[in-house]
Design a protein around this nucleic acid. Structure first.
Lengths: 207, 207, 207, 207
DNA sequence: CATGAATGAGAATTCATTCAT
DNA sequence: GATGAATGAATTCTCATTCAT
């Protein structure tokens, strides 16, 4: 199990989940736009239509909002990934499915992904965000295994530095969150197809 | 002109460049490690071996250190890029040269690149960091042109979404700064070659 | 329009006016006693019975307190002056009314007047305190006009250097704020009468 | 004796008096323009053409510059006043001589007078500036005595509140420093005459 | 659930002053 | 006499957080 099994709702277990979720999405948006550190709790409150102090009825702290945003995203991500892994596909099909699933998550959790991209490295050092490090480890494992299986199965080139290829794929996919706009002409699946085409076959005319 | 024509040294232009540069490198390292916002001026001072207030003898503000770090990096980057562009190479050779030059800059300005990756989007909105937006525009122009020329010359596949391909290349290259360690077994040129191999030919075994 | 049409209450416009006003009066007193620059925000807070940081719940900055104190005073001053001017009195009566009104304002806004005396010249150069310069211009205009009308009407001596006389009157009246103590035996009207007697008839025994 | 008998030159008794005096005049000008507190030692140094630290070769501290400026002015002022008092003139002539002498001092020590006007009240509380309080006391004594003698001699009106009249005269004269520009068309003697005319005979047409 | 008012720790910055060279 | 480089204390201001109402 990866992030959190159950999403934590520490304070105010009786708070209406709707309002809570609304605030959380507002927070995610502002964190993504301005960066976590640069976002004041007052800014979130303003955008959510209440006063800064009132946030603390719903959440323990600014940090706990961040935690909930990130763990919520990772929980869903791993649900998708686990399904892919469990499906017993060929290495190439697995890679295609993982990339496609990733773009779907970017589509659904754009803000969370953007926050993750920007803050994960720093956060992972804190005990509270240990689950980020854990997720990273498992992420690497899944992808590396797929690449290794693919080399053995002659799906992928044998002359690759696999750690480099892993990073290449990982970055390539996730960085998309920084410019991807949901509802902007391309569906996640379309984007995934294009990316896969470049990644698998290269951009050069074979010759 | 890109970043700044001449690197600004606002306060104490006569300050010994040695100490100044030393402090600036320390600042760059800490900014890269902890993020600009999360870095206190005191932390920089501690690491540089003086008191927080003393930094202000050399620099106007924390922000001016950031500006100098980023514009210094971009100045050098564009020196390299301009040379490549002026060399009149084929599209594919140009792309190879740009990627290689990029990895060389990452090698030389690892901290600045990491800061750039993390902060540029937010910063570019401020008038003071207008040069970041300008650099981004020119960057896009150079790469897109190269891709377009390459499609015409049948160096690159004709079925690519070029804007997507541009982002793919851009991200792929620069994100490397987040994990690349200078002196870590691979030279910038070696990394560049591997990247180019993946990018140009793909990771799949051609079928 | 003179100072501000409406007194600005930038931050927390809904803050209880009572506490706000209390703090503002404390600030005015301390500014008057120690000078604006020499007054620390902490000193104000101490005297008002809260912590320095808490001031920023009520006000944007130390400077905005100063602005509000001065513009509040000038707003009231001009209410009074405008009434006098609108009354259509003879030049001499106008001058008497203006002087009397001035002493009344000194009585009501002693601290603000003292601050004004000490800081206005420097402040007026800043865009934020443009309204001080504007007030000064209008002030001069009202007084000079009254003097000129008075000379024509043979209320005042024809051999006066009017600009000199204007300064003489202006300073004479306002400097009183630096030593005038409200509730100190003399009412503003009594002080005004004495001043007027000296100003109009001189201190020498005629002869 | 009033201020200091001998001007103190605490540090660097070997410093060339010329340079010293030059710096002191620069300091006086800047203090007068910007206010003592708002003036940085660096600003003085800039204007005097050396570095901030170098000022400390000539002076012990910023405060000691201030002290020297003010005591220098007061020393000269009292030389003039003492002569007037010793001359054995009639009360009215004494008053005329004091006013004239005051305007001469304003002419010669414009900056010092402006500083005095703005800062004396606050400074007089500090032991170091005790001489300001002393000067004020003696000042009041000389003027009040002259007024009292004048009333007895029927030079001045008997119905005056003498303390009020004293303040009236004092302020009237000294405030002039805030707008008086040496070499601006009027000699100190001319200004004095005009002031005296207003003060003695009033501005109204005698009826 | 929400507000208004505050707290308190820490942030960046300023500046008079020192001192070895 | 002057400089360059620092010190260290103080200053304004920010902000997450608390809590009585």
């Amino acid at each position: 199990m990866l992030a959190r099994v159950s999403t934590p709702q520490k304070s105010s277990p009786n708070a209406s989940p709707a309002r809570r979720q609304e605030i959380l999405q507002t927070a995610a948006r502002v964190f993504a736009e301005q960066g976590y550190n640069a976002t004041t709790v007052r800014k979130i409150a303003d955008e959510a239509g209440l006063l800064a102090g009132s946030l603390y009825y719903h959440f323990d702290s600014k940090e706990s909002m961040l935690e909930e945003i990130l763990s919520g995203f990772l929980d869903e991500l791993w649900e998708g990934y686990d399904e892919v892994v469990a499906a017993g596909l060929s290495p190439k099909e697995t890679l295609e499915a993982l990339v496609t699933e990733s773009f779907r998550e970017i589509d659904r959790h754009r803000d969370a992904v953007a926050i993750y991209q920007k803050e994960a490295r720093q956060l992972a050092a804190q005990p509270r965000f240990e689950f980020l490090a854990e997720s990273q480890r498992r992420f690497e494992q899944v992808w590396l295994e797929t690449l290794e299986r693919g080399v053995s199965a002659q799906d992928f080139r044998a002359d690759l530095d696999l750690r480099l290829a892993y990073r290449f794929l990982r970055d390539t996919v996730w960085v998309a969150a920084s410019w991807y706009r949901p509802g902007g002409g391309h569906s996640p699946e379309q984007i995934a197809r294009q990316y896969l085409s470049m990644v698998l076959e290269g951009i050069a005319v074979p010759g």
